[in-house]
C-alpha cells in the first residue's frame, strides 16, 4: 500500500472507529468479545483497503465487514456452547435499526455525558460503578440494599431517563 493510501486509511479509520465500535458492541455487548471483533475488523479493512473506492461510503463499507465478523463470531460461539443464542432474524432486525442511529455525532456523545452529570447522585454513582468501575449488578444490589431484580429495574430506568434527556437536548438544539 502506498503512503498516500495508508494515510487515507488511517484518517478514515480515525474518523469512523468510534461508530464501528459502537455498532459491534450494540450486537455483541461483552466488551472483551467486541474488542476482539474490532481487532479482526481493523485487520480485514487494512488488508482489503485496496478494494475500497475512495469517496464512497467508508462507514457503510466498514460496518458491512463488521457485520460479517459478528455473524462469524456468533457462529463460532454457537459451536462452543452448542447453541446459538439469538436467530439470524434477530440480528438482521437489530442491524437494520442500529443503522438509523448516529452514535458518532459528537453532540450526542457530549449530551450523554452532560445528561449523566444531571442525574441524581445515587443514579450517577450507579452508572459510574457499572461502567467505569465495572462492578457487577449483584454487588451494586448489595450496596444499594435492593434485590438483584430490583437493581436491574433501577438501572434500566436510569438508562431510559438518559435516553429521554439526550433526545430532549437534541430537540432543543
Amino acid at each position: 500500500m502506498s503512503k498516500d493510501s495508508t494515510e487515507d486509511y488511517l484518517k478514515l479509520l480515525a474518523e469512523h472507529e468510534y461508530a464501528i465500535r459502537v455498532y459491534i458492541i450494540t450486537m455483541i455487548p461483552r466488551l472483551s468479545d467486541a474488542d476482539d471483533i474490532m481487532q479482526e475488523v481493523r485487520l480485514i479493512m487494512w488488508k482489503k483497503f485496496g478494494t475500497f473506492e475512495l469517496g464512497s461510503n467508508f462507514k457503510a463499507w466498514a460496518l458491512q465487514i463488521a457485520y460479517y465478523r459478528i455473524m462469524d463470531f456468533r457462529r463460532r460461539k454457537g459451536r462452543e456452547n452448542k447453541k446459538l443464542i439469538f436467530t439470524d432474524e434477530f440480528y438482521d432486525a437489530v442491524e437494520q435499526a442500529s443503522k438509523k442511529l448516529n452514535p458518532e455525532d459528537s453532540d450526542k456523545r457530549q449530551s450523554l455525558l452532560n445528561c449523566v452529570g444531571k442525574l441524581q447522585d445515587q443514579h450517577k454513582k450507579i452508572i459510574f460503578l457499572r461502567y467505569k468501575e465495572r462492578v457487577s449488578i449483584e454487588e451494586i444490589s448489595e450496596k444499594i440494599g435492593r434485590t438483584v431484580t430490583a437493581t436491574y429495574r433501577v438501572i434500566s430506568r436510569i438508562r431510559a431517563s438518559l435516553k429521554k434527556c439526550i433526545n430532549t437536548t437534541e430537540k432543543a438544539r
Binding site: 459502537v22 458492541i25 450494540t26 455487548p29 435499526a97 449523566v116 461502567y131
Partner: peptide, 15 residues
C-alpha cells in the same frame, strides 16, 4: 432495543 444497546456501547467507550 438497539438504542438501549447503543447507550451501553457509548457509556462503555466513554467510561
Amino acid at each position: 432495543f438497539s438504542e438501549y444497546m447503543q447507550g451501553h456501547a457509548m457509556l462503555s467507550l466513554d467510561a
